[in-house]
C-alpha cells in the first residue's frame, strides 16, 4: 500500500511512545491511548481515579518519553494562583537600581502535571484557565506565552471524597478528555507487583521531541472527514442538550446542560488522531464512537433528577450514542444500514 511517509512516522512515534509508557504502566491500555490522542490533538487531559492507581506515574512516564520540559504542581488547599503562574519580584541590578522581574511559575513548562487538581480552591484552579485555552498567562498586565507544545495533564480524586473542590464547568470544558482510571484486573495487579518490586526499575527512553509533536499536530488537522461522520459527531453533541427537539428521552430527563461546541471539536480532533494512529487517512464513525465518552462525560451536567437517580454519565453518553445512531437517515432504511 502506498502510505504517506508522514503518516508512517506518526504511527511509529505513537506506537513507540505508547510502548515506552507501557514499560512502566501495567494495563490501562485505553487510558494511555487516550492520553496520547489528547496530547497530539493539542488538548489537555484530566485523569480521574482513586489514589494509588498510577495516574501520576503515567504522566511522569509520558514526560520522560518526550524531550520536553516537565513540571509538577501538587495542588493543596493553600496553593495560590501566583504559586502556579509566577509573580513579579523586585531585583537589584549591578548598578544598584531596583526593578521588577517576573519569576516564572511552574506553569511555564511543556508538560504540566497538575496533581490532585481538585484539592485546590476554585480560585487557584482558575489560574490555569487562560494558560490552557490561550497558551499564555497574563501577569501584571503583561501577557507571557507558554512554551509550545503546552500540555496539561491533571489528576483528581472522585469528587465524592472529602477535602476536595469540584472543578468549575468552565475549567472542565478546557480539558479535551476526561479519562477514568479503573482499578487493575488481577493479572495486571500481579504484573504491577512484579515490576515495582524488582531491583532494577524499567528505564524510559525519549522517543519524541517537541517540534515533532507540533508537526504531527499540523498533520492531524489535514485528515479528511466525511460529512456524514461530521454530522454524526454534531448530532451526538446536540443530543446531549435536553432542549434540542430531537434529543433522546434520557437527555430530556436527566440532563441540565448539554455539551459545549468544544465537545464536538474534541470529538473530531480526537477522532482524527485516532484514525491516523491506526494508519487510516480518514475519520470513521467508529472513531467518533470510541471517543464519545472521554469527550462528553465531563461536559454533560446532570439535573437534580439525574443526580438523585445516580445516573452515570458514561451510561448516559452510551444511550445518547445509541439513539443518535438509530436516528440517522441511513439507519431508517433496512437496506442502507
Amino acid at each position: 500500500m502506498n502510505r504517506d511517509a508522514r503518516v508512517e512516522a506518526f504511527v511509529a512515534a505513537f506506537e513507540a511512545l505508547r510502548a515506552e509508557v507501557e514499560k512502566v504502566i501495567v494495563g490501562h491500555h485505553e487510558v494511555i491511548t487516550h492520553v496520547l490522542i489528547g496530547m497530539f490533538a493539542g488538548g489537555h487531559v484530566l485523569l480521574e481515579g482513586v489514589p494509588g492507581l498510577g495516574k501520576t506515574l503515567l504522566i511522569k512516564t509520558l514526560s520522560e518519553g518526550l524531550e520536553l520540559s516537565f513540571s509538577r504542581i501538587q495542588f493543596t488547599p493553600d496553593l495560590m494562583p501566583a504559586d502556579i503562574i509566577g509573580t513579579n519580584i523586585i531585583v537589584e541590578d549591578a548598578d544598584g537600581r531596583k526593578h521588577f522581574q517576573f519569576q516564572h511559575g511552574p506553569i511555564f513548562a511543556h508538560i504540566l502535571l497538575a496533581d490532585e487538581i481538585n484539592r485546590a480552591t476554585p480560585k487557584t484552579q482558575s489560574a490555569l484557565l487562560e494558560g490552557m485555552q490561550e497558551g499564555a498567562v497574563t501577569v501584571g498586565g503583561a501577557s507571557r506565552p507558554l512554551p509550545a507544545p503546552f500540555f496539561v495533564l491533571a489528576t483528581q480524586n472522585p469528587i465524592e471524597m472529602e477535602g476536595t473542590y469540584p472543578l468549575p464547568e468552565a475549567q472542565l470544558d478546557r480539558f479535551l478528555f476526561k479519562l477514568r482510571v479503573r482499578y487493575p484486573a488481577l493479572d495486571e495487579l500481579n504484573a504491577i507487583i512484579d515490576r515495582t518490586t524488582q531491583s532494577r526499575p524499567a528505564t524510559v527512553s525519549r522517543v519524541l521531541s517537541g517540534p515533532a509533536v507540533l508537526s504531527f499536530r499540523e498533520l492531524i488537522r489535514e485528515v479528511p472527514i466525511a460529512s456524514h461522520v461530521r454530522d454524526f459527531a454534531s448530532a451526538i453533541v446536540m443530543a446531549t442538550h435536553p432542549q434540542w427537539e430531537q434529543a433522546p428521552e434520557v437527555a430530556r430527563r436527566f440532563v441540565r446542560y448539554g455539551a459545549s461546541p468544544r465537545a464536538a471539536q474534541a470529538l473530531v480532533l480526537g477522532a482524527k488522531v485516532r484514525a491516523l494512529a491506526e494508519g487510516r487517512y480518514n475519520v470513521s464513525i467508529e472513531d467518533i464512537k470510541a471517543l464519545a465518552a472521554p469527550a462528553l462525560r465531563h461536559r454533560v451536567i446532570l439535573n437534580f433528577e439525574g443526580e438523585a437517580e445516580g445516573v452515570d454519565t458514561d451510561t448516559l453518553v452510551a444511550r445518547v450514542l445509541d439513539n443518535t445512531e438509530a436516528a440517522t437517515a441511513q439507519a431508517r432504511e433496512p437496506f442502507l444500514r
Binding site: R3, V7, P224, S227, R280
Partner: peptide, 26 residues
C-alpha cells in the same frame, strides 16, 4: 471504515490535501 464515502466526498474538492491523495490511493 468510511473510506469510500470520504474518498467520494473529498476526491473532487479543491482544498484536498496530500493526505486525501493518500486516502484515494488507499
Amino acid at each position: 471504515d468510511d473510506r469510500v464515502a470520504t474518498t467520494l466526498e473529498w476526491a473532487g474538492r479543491a482544498d484536498r490535501t496530500r493526505l486525501v491523495d493518500s486516502l484515494v490511493a488507499d
